[in-house]
Design a protein around this nucleic acid. Structure first.
Lengths: 110, 110
DNA sequence: TATAAAAGAAACCAAATGGTTTCATATTGG
DNA sequence: CCAATATGAAACCATTTGGTTTCTTTTATA
């Protein structure tokens, strides 16, 4: 009967949009109110508020109601779902990119 | 001249759809023709073909034309872009989830 | 050489997405 | 208390998305 469709909060969908990824980048630096986030983008506040809703539906943003403003705070934990999914494919990355990745990680031998 | 606008092949968008993620999982096991992929899903072949196009636009699938059939092969390399983006946030993951991720990674060999 | 198989292409559709503007509500400060 | 502030909510819109069906083209093969 599939009793609870419940709409799996889709973190993959949440990060699909570049604006939302930029918002996450902002929130990684500091928690911000809706208005403060909106100031940094060339779109209306309601548009930004919708993006924030998608992000909080995906569990990536937590909202602290503080008087008349809502403070949006990054919760990166759900990104682990994506990392977990990616891990399946790590064996398929080609040598060049594996090397690049290792360089980035500071593991430069040979 | 900005010679090649080239439409940044959006790998984030490519993996946003669960059907497309499932297709990538299939192709990780073996390269498949369009029809072979479509057989595994409860949707029409053209629908699957469209998903494959999004994946190849995102660089995640390479097509080898072989007679009248097109063999679709996983190219996981662009997933490194996602891994790179994720790396920014690794400092924000809590210990429990880091442990979970490592567990998932360990399952690969079994 | 017909015919069947594999896929592409096009037209179409409903729903979701990403944006807008306008209005309503709650909270704070003077 | 009243005005300004911060946000939510609703209505609306255009485009994209994810799917369909139907038709065409290409290629292999009996």
């Amino acid at each position: 009967m599939t009793p609870n469709p419940v709409q799996a909060p889709d973190v993959f969908r949440a990060i699909a949009d570049p604006t939302r990824r930029a918002i996450l980048g902002l929130l990684a630096e500091q928690a911000l109110s809706v208005g403060d986030v909106a100031e940094r983008f060339e779109m209306s506040r309601p548009a930004v508020a919708k993006h924030l809703k998608v992000l909080s539906d995906g569990g990536l943003v937590e909202v602290e109601v503080r008087g008349r403003s809502r403070i949006n705070r990054l919760n990166a934990a759900p990104l682990a779902d994506i990392a977990g999914w990616l891990a399946r494919f790590e064996g398929f990355w080609d040598d060049k990119l594996t090397a690049l990745k290792q360089e980035v990680e500071g593991e430069n031998d040979q």
